[in-house]
């Protein structure tokens, strides 16, 4: 049975899409069937990391939400060089067309369609994991994504606003009875003590910290262009991504 994993951050710029892409790649490289759905309809971005060119003629998530197509028609196979034992990686992109984005924001859509889409995707693609790259904040589609998820990763940077916002997300997620909730801390300044930070966050939230990523400008620059862990399999960042994807497959 497929596990639906929401990856969320309360504010933008936490590196959520980047981490999602890397987790997806790592899961797929261990032979899992993985799809990533970009529900960040207002500001889609994960396709850039996967180097997926958007074709205006091909259906995407927006077309499904406007009932123009079935969800499985919007699936794109990500062209990652296949390592041995690696499974396919699927992406359901959102439209980057500004007109489409404006229309979604103005007219809205039936949020219920999203959860139906998730279920159908899991079934049609016989997925092991469906990763949902959510929109920052707690709007309706994000709340819905969390509500239907088996697992939730909350990504935050160690700063005041992320700290407060993530606390809200975690409380709401607990209300929605998400089974496995974990925190991921990204862009940690080199001056911070990782162990102490982990202890502080875990005791403040009452949820485990599944992974911690120290900040690096170089990494962020490279990481937004391609799947970093694929390019640099021996890097410390990649090791932490592996830890995180193992955590997701095991809990």
């Amino acid at each position: 049975m497929a596990a639906i994993v929401s990856i969320h951050s309360y504010r933008g710029g936490t590196g959520k899409s980047n981490l999602t892409a890397n987790i997806a790649y790592q899961l797929a490289s261990t032979g899992k069937r993985v799809a990533v759905i970009d529900t960040d309809i207002q500001s889609p971005g994960i396709h850039v990391i996967f180097n997926v060119q958007q074709d205006a003629n091909l259906p995407c998530l927006n077309d499904y939400l406007w009932r123009k197509c079935e969800i499985e028609e919007a699936v794109v196979e990500v062209d990652v060089t296949m390592a041995e034992g690696m499974n396919k990686l699927f992406l359901i992109p959102s439209s980057t067309n500004t007109g489409d984005i404006a229309r979604i924001i103005n007219d809205g859509y039936n949020v219920e369609l999203l959860s139906e889409g998730f279920e159908r995707l899991c079934e049609k693609l016989s997925l092991d994991f469906l990763l949902i790259d959510t929109h920052p904040g707690l709007n309706e589609e994000t709340l819905l994504s969390i509500a239907v998820s088996d697992k939730l990763l909350v990504i935050l940077r160690p700063d005041q606003q992320d700290f407060e916002g993530s606390s809200i997300t975690l409380r709401v997620a607990s209300r929605l009875q998400v089974e496995h909730i974990a925190v991921v801390i990204n862009k940690i300044p080199a001056s911070l003590n990782l162990e102490a930070l982990k202890g502080d966050v875990e005791s403040a939230y009452g949820h485990p910290v599944a992974a911690m990523f120290p900040h690096s400008d170089d990494l962020m620059l490279l990481g937004s262009k391609e799947v970093f862990s694929k390019r640099y399999p021996g890097h410390q960042f990649t090791r932490e991504i592996t830890t995180l994807s193992n955590y997701i497959s095991q809990v």
Binding site: S115, L138, L143, L144, A147, V148, E164, I168, R175, L176
Partner: peptide
Amino acid sequence: SIDKKKEDKIVKEITETDFFRKLEEKSN
């Protein structure tokens, strides 16, 4: 500093909507 009062208020705003109640049922 995590401001408990402010946080309670925001959580309440989110969870006391019809949408959220339906969502809770659905997730249940």
